[in-house]
């Protein structure tokens, strides 16, 4: 196991940050910790990177205990904290050189690992990190975390605050790194990024809701989801919430995702109910559940 957590709990004063967390990450796996802000993702990262001592339970990283062998772990992992922690007043190159030096290596020595990422920021190597856009900072921070060829890479919300283009590029980079035999634990509040991981843990309020592959989690969804649309979104939601067979209704972009209490029902019934409610341009179609549906169902 590259990463292994056994019944980890951690509290800050009265507040329980994480409770009874257990999961394993296999070598070479891209594992996602998916959950909203305040779910406990950062606490888990800090325990695994030896920055916090767990209140209860044990955890190992690359075979080392997070409490006993913290020095070995600090030598062997790469860590990118939640905010892209760079020296804003140092240039791109100076940041990279600095992190290489403290890990006792050089940029050249590990060039092959960071090459495809570094070429994208190399044209700006004399620019100060503080003057970079979010996407560029993110790439530089990743380079800095990779500079010493870590066996395990911890990325805490690497895509938060970054535009979709950079996010997409970032995930492509992670996929390539994975092929170079690096185990990656990544956290994100964006449910749509879950599908890009090998396996995910859905987490909320310090507890794990589910651990599995994204496909399996979606396939376990117990209900049939209907995409329901109408001309007035607010009235549509109001009407559905009053509907006696309603199991759940959530806005999902231009539609709402509707599930029914009954195992099977006539779509026409629902349509006539909505028409009676005065809605027009009604559309009702069966839809594929996604991770977000699964998360909401599990969090109910």
């Amino acid at each position: 196991m590259s990463i292994s957590l056994n019944n980890i709990s951690k509290s800050y004063k009265k507040l329980k940050a994480v409770q009874d967390i257990s999961f394993d990450v296999n070598p070479g796996e891209l594992f996602g910790l998916i959950g909203p802000d305040g779910a406990g993702k950062t606490t888990i990262f800090r325990i695994l990177t030896t920055l916090l001592i767990p209140g209860e339970g044990t955890a190992t990283v690359a075979g080392f205990d997070v409490v006993e062998d913290y020095k070995e772990i600090r030598n062997s992992v790469g860590y990118m904290p939640g905010r892209f922690s760079l020296y804003q007043d140092l240039t791109v190159e100076e940041n990279l050189t600095f992190f290489a030096t403290i890990f006792g290596t050089t940029i050249e020595e590990n060039h092959d690992l960071i090459e495809d990422i570094y070429v994208q920021i190399e044209p700006f190597k004399n620019r100060r990190a503080g003057k970079l856009s979010g996407g560029m900072k993110q790439k530089l921070a990743l380079c800095c975390a990779l500079i010493h060829k870590p066996k395990v890479l911890f990325l805490d919300e690497p895509t938060t605050g970054v535009d979709p283009v950079s996010r997409k590029e970032f995930w492509e980079m992670l996929k390539r790194l994975q092929k170079k035999n690096i185990t990656i634990l990544v956290s994100t509040p964006y449910m749509d990024e879950a599908a890009l991981c090998d396996r995910i843990a859905l987490i909320q309020n310090g507890e794990i809701l589910e651990i599995d592959t994204p496909e399996a989690i979606v396939n376990k969804f117990p209900k049939t989801i209907y995409n329901v649309g109408a001309d007035n979104m607010y009235k549509l939601i109001q009407s559905l919430q009053k509907y006696k067979y309603l199991y759940s209704v959530f806005p999902f972009g231009e539609f709402v995702h509707y599930t029914d209490k009954r195992d099977s029902f006539e779509v026409a019934d629902l349509r006539s109910y909505l028409e009676k409610e005065g809605l027009v341009n009604i559309s009702i179609e069966v839809a594929q559940p996604n991770i977000e549906d699964a998360f909401m169902e599990l969090a109910r």
């Binding site: 959950g35 909203p36 802000d37 779910a39 509040p189 959530f250 977000e292 998360f295 909401m296 969090a299």
Partner: peptide, 10 residues
């Protein structure tokens, strides 16, 4: 709604 859980976001 950045970072908010899916249900609260709804």
């Amino acid at each position: 709604t950045g970072g908010v859980d899916p249900i609260t976001r709804r």
